[in-house]
Amino acid sequence: MSPPAEPAPLSGRQPKAVRNALAVLEEVVAAGPGVTAKEISAALKLPPATTYRLLNLLVGEEYLVRLPDLRGFALGRRAGRLTVPVASGPPAAARAVVERLRQRVRWGVHLASYQSGRVELADADPDHPPSDGALLARYPHASALGKLLLAEQADWRAVVRELRPFTTATITEAGRLETELADVARTGLARQCGELYPGRGCLAVAIRDVVNGTLVAGLAVSGPTERVAEPNPELLALLREHAEQLAPLLA
């Protein structure tokens, strides 16, 4: 019996192609669902033709999927095998705290997690559906929960890929956003008034690890823009009270 054939050696171009394909996957993760081929090409400084070829390959192998509605790409079925599974939601004790707050206010109450380095809705209010999760993750500058995350960054520009305007109230000037994020970092409170959808606003407070103080989650209430713009000291006190109760449960 003849010995098994030796595998063909990698050509000089193959390692680069593998690295580029992995870079495309990383860019889809970083940018979030809906990132376009043009955005990927610009971010990675790859020729458009190369980017399209890699995207077609990754879609064909089911590491990526096309999103017709978003006209972009998202992680596919096989990409899930590259990550360690995580818990699908907060512990029961944390959900109970969030539910108690919902019973005490007439606003929508949402809990977000930052464990992945992005805004992820961990417990969204079923009676007051929040904004699309993919939208919050991709454009954190336009939401209160996103601003909490950005205020924690050494350089928020590394997280925000585009200061996209959703309404006339959306902050699209870097200097103005910088000033607001400094205030969020100082107070642990973020506010958005009609920046994502007209007539809707949100207040959010930070939830920090009780041991090391790192940002782990955000607790938000959403309601009419004019009510969000008010000082609302009683609502803020209630929001902070429940955020403190959540801190040891989410560490």
Score class of each variant (00 low, 15 high):
residue 214 T to R: 14
residue 82 L to F: 15
residue 174 A to Q: 14
residue 24 V to A: 07
residue 170 T to H: 09
residue 179 T to M: 11
residue 25 L to I: 03
residue 131 S to T: 04
residue 152 E to Q: 10
residue 41 S to T: 15
residue 148 L to A: 04
residue 113 S to H: 12
residue 101 L to P: 00
residue 161 R to V: 02
residue 75 L to C: 09
residue 6 E to R: 15
residue 67 L to Q: 12
residue 97 V to I: 10
residue 35 V to L: 08
residue 238 L to K: 04
residue 211 V to G: 12
residue 185 A to S: 13
residue 85 P to F: 00
residue 70 L to K: 11
residue 188 G to S: 14
residue 186 R to P: 09
residue 147 K to V: 07
residue 228 V to N: 02
residue 198 P to K: 12
residue 165 P to G: 06
residue 132 D to F: 07
residue 72 G to N: 01
residue 141 H to T: 00
residue 160 V to N: 06
residue 13 R to N: 06
residue 68 P to N: 02
residue 50 T to I: 07
residue 181 L to V: 11
residue 97 V to Y: 06
residue 101 L to M: 03
residue 49 A to H: 13
residue 106 R to I: 12
residue 191 R to T: 09
residue 231 P to L: 09
residue 119 V to W: 01
residue 180 E to Y: 13
residue 20 N to G: 14
residue 88 S to D: 12
residue 7 P to R: 11
residue 133 G to D: 09
residue 31 A to Q: 09
residue 88 S to W: 14
residue 146 G to P: 00
residue 231 P to M: 07
residue 80 G to I: 03
residue 209 D to W: 00
residue 235 L to F: 04
residue 190 A to G: 10
residue 247 A to G: 05
residue 61 E to S: 13
residue 31 A to G: 01
residue 65 V to H: 07
residue 13 R to M: 14
residue 25 L to Q: 06
residue 214 T to L: 13
residue 5 A to N: 05
residue 158 A to R: 10
residue 14 Q to E: 14
residue 99 E to K: 06
residue 13 R to L: 14
residue 197 Y to I: 09
residue 189 L to M: 11
residue 126 P to N: 01
residue 81 R to V: 03
residue 165 P to R: 02
residue 117 G to P: 02
residue 234 E to R: 15
residue 32 G to T: 03
residue 118 R to V: 06
residue 135 L to C: 03
residue 103 Q to G: 15
residue 251 A to F: 05
residue 68 P to I: 02
residue 129 P to D: 09
residue 58 L to V: 08
residue 172 T to S: 12
residue 6 E to V: 10
residue 229 A to S: 12
residue 19 R to W: 08
residue 140 P to L: 01
residue 200 R to E: 02
residue 74 A to C: 05
residue 16 K to E: 15
residue 10 L to Y: 10
residue 7 P to E: 08
residue 165 P to Y: 13
residue 54 L to E: 10
residue 68 P to A: 13
residue 6 E to F: 13
residue 69 D to R: 14
residue 40 I to E: 02
residue 141 H to K: 07
residue 200 R to W: 07
residue 159 V to Y: 10
residue 89 G to T: 15
residue 230 E to G: 12
residue 159 V to N: 06
residue 9 P to D: 13
residue 167 T to Q: 00
residue 118 R to N: 07
residue 232 N to Q: 15
residue 218 G to Q: 02
residue 103 Q to S: 09
residue 32 G to Q: 01
residue 89 G to D: 01
residue 166 F to S: 00
residue 85 P to I: 03
residue 173 E to A: 15
residue 210 V to N: 10
residue 67 L to E: 13
residue 122 A to G: 14
residue 50 T to C: 08
residue 110 H to A: 00
residue 204 A to H: 04
residue 152 E to S: 06
residue 141 H to N: 01
